[in-house]
Computed example of a mutant assay.
Amino acid sequence: MKLLAIVAHPDDADIFCGGTLAKHADRGDTVTIAHLTRGEYGGIETTTSEIASVREAEARQSGEILGADAVEFLGFEDGRIEYSLENRLSIVETIRTFSPDIVLTHYRDDMHPDHRVTSRLVTDAYYMASLPLVETPSDPCDPENVYYFGKPTAEFDPSVYVDISGYEDVKADAIRRHESQVEFLQSHGGIDAEFDNLVDGIAAENTVLGKQTGVDSAEGFVPFHETTRAYLE
């Protein structure tokens, strides 16, 4: 099986689906992480180009820990991801390049505007990737399904749970590789309480999801199609 996680920023994949990616990589599946941006707004007291370089390096290190086969950056601008045909076609080409069975991305209901736009772009690109008359350099492909991840909200209610028991430490280690971002989020404060203790807070959320399905730790998803031949597990 081939998985492609398309996320807005470095650290998004680790936080939202790092355990799932590590589990699939460990069992021999092909895992790719594609970042729309280099996260250049995620820092203080330095330049955006310096932040982007640091965050890209951190993301590549965390990708190695998760066992990803490829870590890509698509060149979008942090905080300024826009819904456009050009951007949609860029993601179509990314999907076609890696020809995944399953695509993972952000849920549409999210506080961060980049996450919301990413969700819409990926959903529409997923549809377009199979259309022969949509021209991009790579050949059309037809992924089985999109699985959305997100933070607990009134709207986001997972219906698919992936048991990540045994991969908690791998996920935590991958998140900690984003040293600059963990420090920034914890000092940023105010916007989201989970940033006060990022790694422990995410682990606690995974534990809660695990209890709902009778396992030690889990990540939750909402599938685009309820019925599919390729299952995220």
Rank of each mutant, 00 (worst) to 15 (best):
S130G: 09
L89N: 01
A129S: 11
Q186A: 11
G75Y: 00
S62N: 11
A8C: 06
A125M: 01
P100D: 05
A25Y: 02
G39Q: 11
L131P: 01
H115A: 04
A34P: 00
L74A: 08
C17R: 14
S138K: 06
P152H: 15
E40Y: 06
T37S: 09
D110G: 08
I191K: 14
V199F: 02
D110R: 08
T97K: 13
D169C: 07
H35M: 09
A172K: 14
Y127H: 09
A34M: 01
N145I: 07
L36W: 03
I15R: 14
P158F: 13
A13L: 07
N206C: 11
L74N: 07
K171A: 08
T32W: 00
V31K: 12
Q61M: 07
G210F: 02
D14H: 09
D114V: 09
V208T: 15
D216P: 00
G201P: 02
Y83K: 10
T48Y: 03
G150V: 12
S217L: 03
V134K: 01
P100W: 05
E135L: 01
S165W: 05
Y231P: 05
N145A: 08
D14R: 09
T97C: 01
I33W: 03
M1E: 14
V7Y: 04
S187D: 10
P137Q: 03
F195Q: 12
V103S: 03
T213D: 03
S53K: 15
R88T: 05
E45C: 02
T46L: 01
A13K: 10
L36Q: 12
L104F: 05
T32Q: 04
I33R: 11
V215M: 08
G220I: 15
T105Q: 07
G190L: 05
G150I: 12
E194I: 15
L185H: 11
M111Q: 13
E168P: 02
T123Q: 04
S119A: 12
G19S: 11
V7R: 10
R60S: 06
G166H: 11
D169H: 13
S165N: 12
P113K: 11
T32C: 07
R177V: 08
D124K: 08
I91G: 01
T47R: 04
Y161L: 14
K211E: 13
V103G: 02
L3Y: 15
S165F: 05
A68K: 07
L66S: 10
A218M: 13
I175T: 10
L36R: 10
R96Y: 00
R116M: 03
V7S: 07
L21P: 08
R120M: 05
L85P: 00
T20W: 07
E77M: 06
F224T: 14
E179C: 03
T47M: 04
Y41F: 06
A172C: 05
V199I: 10
H106P: 02
I33V: 15
G166V: 12
D114C: 06
P140K: 04
E72I: 07
G79M: 05
L131N: 02
Y231A: 14
T37D: 07
R108L: 02
E50I: 10
F221C: 12
